[in-house]
Design a protein around this nucleic acid. Structure first.
Length: 259
DNA sequence: ATGGCTATATGTTATAGA
């Protein structure tokens, strides 16, 4: 099974780039972030025509997550537990069944800038809720894959110019510690199971020539529970997508599983 | 150096992103 995460930065803006990548990469499941669309405006046909089931959790204008799957999805839930007043569409779950059942979580973690401030407070409180949900899922002993745009640079090796991010919400010590707390529950950063070392990025800003200068950061992650880590056979980043026509500022990150 | 580009809605400017 091949599972990918991709912050597409607008589903309608990626009407050509996303199907083009799907046809080349042939993932079984894709967790999408920043669809920037209400559910009823999501263009389903290009995906259903390719054999994908579409489950969305969107809102007007910003945010929004979705799952595309060529395998059956069950028990779909929307919204991260822990705060009934949170109206931002950033979390969706479903169980996908191939040779094994896997609980999927698609997430778009708050950016948090500027820090300090209310947006950063929201980021950290969202991460505390994420940790609680991650712990609850771990207790089920299912294979769990939590994938999406975490908006966290875990380590200096995950940025071409770490010094440029020292005061940024994506790289502040508290953000990195909150991410590390989830790993410390027992989850693994799946790309790191397969590819240690620097130079693996998933985002390049549209501005300031970040792409041609390769000033990237790695902020899109697939975290896997121990039961899911047992099944991982490979991982990668489809960097070439950033060079396509009308690209997102993020590129797809994927894993393959013996499942 | 300068938020330098992009997407969307609030729409010929503002907001958010990272």
């Amino acid at each position: 099974m091949k599972i990918a995460t991709f912050n597409i930065n607008g589903i309608r803006a990626r009407a050509e780039a996303l199907p083009s990548w799907l046809d080349a990469a042939r993932p079984d499941v894709v967790l999408l972030q920043e669809i920037k669309s209400p559910d009823d405006a999501f263009p389903r046909a290009p995906f259903e025509d390719r054999g994908y089931t579409v489950e969305t959790h969107g809102q007007k204008g910003f945010n929004g997550v979705a799952i595309l799957s060529r395998l059956p999805l069950m028990d779909v839930t929307r919204g991260l537990p822990g705060d009934q007043t949170d109206e931002q569409a950033r979390w969706i779950e479903a169980t996908v069944t191939g040779q094994a059942a896997i609980r999927l979580c698609g997430l778009y973690l708050p950016n948090g800038n500027p820090a300090p401030g209310p947006k950063y407070d929201y980021k950290l409180s969202w991460m505390a809720r994420l940790r609680d949900r991650a712990a609850a899922l771990l207790a089920t002993e299912m294979a769990v894959v939590m994938a999406g745009d975490y908006n966290v640079i875990p380590d200096p090796a995950d940025a071409a110019r770490p010094e440029a991010w020292s005061d940024d919400a994506l790289f502040l010590p508290e953000s990195r510690a909150a991410f590390r707390r989830i790993l410390n529950l027992g989850y693994s950063d799946a790309l790191r199971l397969c590819h240690p070392g620097p130079g693996h990025y998933s985002f390049w800003d549209y501005q300031a020539g970040a792409w041609p200068k390769n000033h990237g950061i790695r902020i899109d992650h697939l975290l896997v529970s121990p039961q899911a880590a047992d099944l991982v056979t490979g991982a990668g980043i489809d960097k070439a997508v950033r060079d396509g026509d009308k690209p997102s500022d993020h590129v797809p990150v994927w894993i393959t599983l013996d499942a």
